[in-house]
Structures are given as C-alpha cells and as structure tokens.
Design a protein around this nucleic acid. Structure first.
Length: 668
RNA sequence: AGCGGGGUGGGGUAGCCAGGAUAUCCCGGCGGGCUCAUAACCCGCAGAUCGGUGGUUCAAAUCCACCCCCCGCUACCA
C-alpha cells in the first residue's frame, strides 16, 4: 500500500440541482480529503478530482419551475457548491463540471469507441410520452395506481407503499406527474450498454478485491451473482451530452454514463491547466498508480460495475479502481437527508456559523463508515467542546503556553524518566496506528486513536506537575515540556488531515515550517531546542448550538439568499389609510378596501372578513406594498397588499404605524 | 419481495470477519484531586445477563439456525 508513487482520488460528483448538505460531506468529500491530505503528507503525488454533475431531467424541470434555463440552474449550484467545498477545505486538485466542451469530447469518445467495438447497441423500447408536456417521461415522473397493493401514488419505477419494483406500463390509470394528463406509450430507440459482455472480466477483477469494505464488496458480488443486465444509456431529453451519431438530435447520453466519465475528463482538464498536457497519463496509464474512489453506498455499482466495464471496453490500458471505500449514510433526526424534502443541514449555512475545522472534526468523529450515523446538534456541540477544545486543544495550549511563559523557547531534553519514555513510546505507537488506520480508510478510528493519545498526554502533564517542577527543578521541568511538545507536534500532524486549518497554523508556530512542506514522518523527529515560542491564544474555542435549524422548510433553505437594500426598497412599502371597506361580491372571506397611499387611492383585496369588521378597519393606518404585481382575486383587481402577521393558530394582526403619520409616507 | 447494514449500561458508540479471563470510548449522574490550562484537566464510583430463542464449543457480544424490530438500497439523493 505504501511506497506507491501516485494516487488518483475520484470523488462522487454532486448533482447540481441543489446545495450540498452535511450528508454529502460525511458521505464522501470529507473522507476523500482526509485521505488526500494524508497521502500528500506521505509524499505521494496525488490527483484528486470531482465536479458538478449538471445534466438530467431534474435540472430541466427545476429550470422550468423557475422560468429559467438548465444552464443557469446548473451553474448556480456549481458555483455555490464549489465555493462551499473550498471553504470546508476539501483540497481538490480540480473541481470541475460536466457541462463543458472538454467533458463532452471525452464522453463522446468513450461512447463512440464502445459503439464501434459493439459494446453499445441500439434497441427500441416503449416509453411513456406526455402529449401535453411534449416529452418522454422518466419513470420517476409518471404516477398511477399500484397493480399489487392499490396504492394510488405509485411511481413509474417503484411503489412507495409496498416497495415493489414497477414498470411504468404496470401502473393503472397512469398520469404525468408534471401536468396530470395521461401519457401514451411511444416507441423510441435508445443505446444500450452491453454490461453482460463484461460479466466474466468483472468477476475476475473483483475476485482480487477481498479487502474491500463489506458493503462495497457484498453489493458488487451480488450484482454479479444475479447476472448483469444491459442498460439503456440514452434518454429522450435535450439537456445533456449530445449523442455523437446522426439522427439522435433529440436524445442525450444518460447522466450516469456521462458523470463517471468525468473522472477522466477532469484529469485531462487538470493536465491542461497545469501546463503539462500529458500529465494525466501518469495517473491513468501507469501501473504504479493507485485509484481510489470515494462515494456513498447508493453509488457503489456505478463505480464497481459500470465504470470499470466502460473502462475495460474503452481500452485495455486504463487503470481500473483499486479501492472504493463507500460510506453509509449520515441521517438527521432518524431520517435520511433529502434534498427534495428540504430535510437537511446545508453546508453553507453551517459554515456561516461554525469553522470548517469544527465541522470536519465532528463529521470525522461520527463518520458513517460501517453503519448509518446520526447528526445530532447537541452531540456536535458537546463533542467539539469536550474532545476538540477540552481534550486536544487544551493539551496543546497548556503545553505551549506554559513553555512560552516560563521558558520562552523550547527547552532541552534532560535525562528521561520511565514516565517520559512511556509517553514517548505511546506517541510513537499512536502515530504508527493512526497511519495504518488511515491507510486502511478507517478514519473515525484513526481520529479516536489520536484523541486517546491526547488524553494520555493530559494525564502525563498532570502527573508530572511541571508547575511544581518549575519552582526548584527547572531542568526536569524543561524535559517534561520538551516531551510534551513532542507529543503536541505529533498530534498536530496526526490531526492535520481532519482539522487542517488550525493544525497548519500551530505547526508553523512550533516548527517554523509549513505543514504542507513537511513530511508525515517529520512529526516524530523531536522538537527544535531553543526555538522561540510566543504565547498564543488557545487553538480551538467552544461553540454553542445553532438554534433549531433541523426542520427548516425547503424554500427557505434552498433559496436562502439575502435581500439587498435595493430589493427591499423596490417593494414600495408605504403607509396607507383605509378609506372604505366593502364586501367582495363573489367571495365570502374577502373585503375590498379603498386605501389612500398619498399619491392615489388603491383598491386592495384582503382576506380579513371574519377577523376584522369593516368598522375596525375604516380609518386605520396600515402598511401597504404598493409595487406588488396587481392580481385579480375572484374578479376584483387588487393593486398591492397590506402587511399582517399570522401565527400557526390563525390569529391575524395587522401592522400599523404607532403614531399618526400621513398616508404615502415611505417605509425604509 | 429481494439484497445490504444494524440492534451492546440513561443517550451515542467500539469490539464481531481471525471465539477466551475485569466488554471500549464519549456524553450524562455521583464523589474526590489539581490549579499549568478555555469551569479546563486528572482520579474513582454507580450503571449492560451484548434484540429474542435454540444450537456448536471447555469457553459465544463474537460462529450456526430460526424469529422479532430499525435503517438503507433496488440502477439519478452522499
């Protein structure tokens, strides 16, 4: 495992249809980054790439909902997610995207090569087509009654009630999920990837991977055991990589075929950008490179079956995945994170409030390596405060600050006692263990081993009582501090892959070097005697819980963007005076208000009947949004709206100025 | 339905594949110590018949069988 010269790290491509949440991070970005940082420290040449997966039907629909283009949606989330990942300190060598010329070329090249070799073939299928939406519907976008259990909202691919896998044709009373009209079935020709042709080779290849994680290996073996089915790799949509064959202008390459090609296209892009166009070959065509892919459990077959099959078919020379350490899921309040339902903690929200180190620390601490884990806000605060701040941070700080204030420099090492020797051997042992665990992708365990060492160091420090030694045994005290500082140095290195920001700073403080320029093994080389140490603030500070953010709603979360002052002013909030209140002729809860807003009198339709009487309203000063787009409500025009508060019990309260002021007075 | 993962003191969690003597660690509770350090740190105590039943074995949290419960996946949510 060690001693290889190069490591390629591929990380699953997040779908650019929404923001990243903590589940994504714990699932693959953080473990990938921990590994990449560790490998670089060990002197490996690392290439870590990923990017936004920007194609597919959900993005098209999202764009339609917002009245914009798929490009706009895909770019928005690409930029936003790239920025979040950068702030979290995920050290990609390149984070790119799939809607790119260079990516298209690679996908089309792989596609054509497989086509020419007979690994891709054409076949007709019957697919639901919505005449009203004028498009073919993906399985998830048709709904109907389940033929097995009678559940009326079964999807085209599966019934959520009884769990059975379905074909859209099985559904009774089939409906288009977008417009509710009845789709018809139309013949459409598609390209199929001949997975069945690779079964033998894949089986042989996988048989050499006995050290893979249980979830990865079992799932893969199971697919192979059941026999591989050829799968269609094109769809009837127009947002995606075009098919490089004439006559298929209305179809695109299916996103999963598209996305995995990104590993290669991103490598090419990286090579180009670094100025050495051939550089990618070292990673893809050289035997001495190791390929590791980080992803979560739902993505396993794409990386252990489909992508390897594609590579095998494409060329004999390309490097296949060596390991695929897939994680389980991070859950929230007992349920899975869900983009669509807004049940999530968004990364950018979180980074507004907490440091990247804090977030990384906790997610590493509970990392769902072998089983689903649960994100718990209280636990987050507690673990950061007790382990990162109280245990490690405190030890580092007490050793450094004691040395700084009493010696001002790193004291020399005198004669060692048994306790010193035990401490140092504990350090070395932990250091080896952490390295071995990281090599084996056991990140959570590695972190805990480092924390244990820190506990041991706190014990050592307490038992040696340097604050007493300083009074009469200065040299002995210096020795204890020297040993402690050696442990600090080791801890900084061991923790660096997990909490890179603060450990870099502290490492420079202690050694004068950047940790990036240091080697993993430098951690055990002792501390530089006589090096001047300044008093520094504690490395980590305690945190407080976020207010109850866990159950926030979709819209709020997803479109959370600040309102600018300009936007606020554009609404045209002004004081209005109610002149007259009449019943709406065709609605039993609406009033028609005549409101003086200074420059003119507006008619406003308000749903206040039964809440306020006309007498209560007439003459009242209220707040009006005058620039609201006029709308007809039951036939009556409403030119603006009034502001009122309403709680979940249905209590409604109108906002009004608290002193007399003339109608039309602007609010800002 | 099939497949994958899991059920361990009040909460969370390690150990299980390669069976063994006081079942790990964090939080929480209780009691003590220290005063270098961010009310931190250190020590001690209470608390688990390791989902259930049966089996293999000198010995089972660990292996086998059956059952119950939770979570996930089933080809576009990490």
């Amino acid at each position: 495992m060690r001693g290889m010269s190069r490591t390629f790290i591929g990380v699953a491509w997040p779908y650019a249809n929404g923001p990243l949440h903590l589940g994504h991070i714990a699932g693959c970005y953080l473990p990938a980054d921990i590994y990449a940082r560790y490998m670089r420290l060990r002197g490996e040449e690392v290439l870590m790439v990923s990017g936004s997966d920007q194609h597919g039907t959900p993005i098209t629909l999202h764009a339609e909902e917002e009245g914009t283009t798929p490009e706009e949606i895909a770019e928005r989330y690409h930029r936003r997610n790239a920025e979040s990942l950068r702030r979290l300190g995920i050290s990609f060598d390149l984070y790119t995207k799939t809607h790119r010329e260079g990516h298209f070329r690679v996908v089309q090249d792989i596609f054509l090569t497989l086509l020419n070799k007979g690994f891709i073939y054409r076949k007709s299928m019957e697919s639901p087509y919505c005449p009203k939406c004028k498009r073919f519907l993906p399985d998830r976008y048709v709904e109907g009654t389940c033929p097995y259990c009678g559940y009326p909202k079964a999807r085209g691919d599966q019934c959520d009630n009884c769990g059975r896998t379905l074909d859209p044709k099985d559904l009774i009373d089939i409906k288009c999920k977008i417009c509710s009209s009845t789709p018809e079935f139309r013949e459409t020709e598609h390209f199929y990837l001949k997975l069945s042709a690779f079964e033998g080779r894949l089986r042989e290849w996988v048989s050499g991977k006995r050290n893979w994680r249980a979830n990865t290996l079992n799932l893969t073996m199971n697919w192979l055991k059941e026999g591989l089915k050829d799968r269609p790799i094109t769809r009837d949509i127009t947002w995606g990589v075009p098919i490089p064959v004439d006559g298929y202008e209305d179809k695109r390459i299916y996103v999963w075929f598209d996305a995995v090609c990104g590993y290669l296209s991103a490598s090419l892009q990286w090579a180009e950008e670094t100025g050495d166009k051939e550089a990618w070959k070292r990673f893809w065509l050289d035997e001495n490179t190791r390929h590791v892919y980080f992803l979560a459990k739902d993505n396993i077959p794409f990386h252990t079956i489909i992508w390897p099959a594609m590579l095998m078919g494409y060329s004999e020379q390309y490097h296949l995945p060596d390991d695929v350490p897939a994680n389980e899921y991070l859950k929230l309040g007992g349920e899975q994170f869900s983009k669509s339902r807004g049940h999530a903690l968004w990364l950018d929200d979180f980074l507004e409030r907490y440091s990247a180190d804090n977030v990384r620390f906790y997610l590493s601490y509970i990392m769902p390596e072998n089983r689903d884990a649960t994100f718990d806000m209280e636990e987050f605060v507690q673990v950061v405060n007790t382990e990162l701040v109280g245990n490690v941070g405190n030890f580092i700080h007490r050793a450094l600050s004691f040395t700084a204030t009493r010696f001002g420099e790193v004291p020399g090492l005198g004669e060692l006692t048994d306790a010193d020797r035990e401490m140092l051997s504990h350090l070395e042992r932990s250091f080896r263990d952490v390295g071995d665990l990281l090599d084996g992708f056991r990140f959570k365990e590695a972190l805990k081993r480092a924390l244990e060492l820190s506990h041991e160091a706190n014990r050592y420090f307490s038992s040696q009582e340097p604050w007493k030694l300083i009074k009469g045994e200065r040299e002995r005290c210096g020795t204890v501090l020297n040993v402690s500082l050696q442990v600090v140095k080791g801890l900084l290195m061991m923790l660096h892959p997990f909490v890179p920001f603060k450990t870099s700073e502290m490492w420079r403080e202690l050694t004068g070097k950047g940790i990036q320029e240091s080697h993993w093994e430098d951690a055990l080389g002792g501390v530089e005697e006589g090096r001047v140490l300044r008093k520094t603030p504690p490395p980590f500070s305690k945190i407080e819980p976020f207010e109850k953010v866990e159950e926030r709603e979709v819209k709020e979360m997803e479109e959370k963007e600040y309102v600018t002052v300009e936007e606020f002013l554009r609404m045209g909030l002004v004081v209005g005076k109610v002149l007259e209140v009449k019943d709406h002729p065709k609605a039993d809860k609406l009033y028609l208000l005549k409101v003086d807003i200074g420059e003119e009198v507006r008619q406003i339709v308000a749903g206040l009947k039964g809440i306020y009487t006309p007498e209560e309203l007439e003459g009242k000063l209220i707040v009006i949004i005058k620039n609201l787009k006029p709308a007809k409500l039951r036939g009556e025009i409403s030119e603006g709206t009034l502001l009122a508060a309403e709680n979940d019990k249905g209590v409604v309260s109108i906002l009004q100025p608290d002193k007399e002021i003339e109608p039309g007075a602007p609010i800002h």
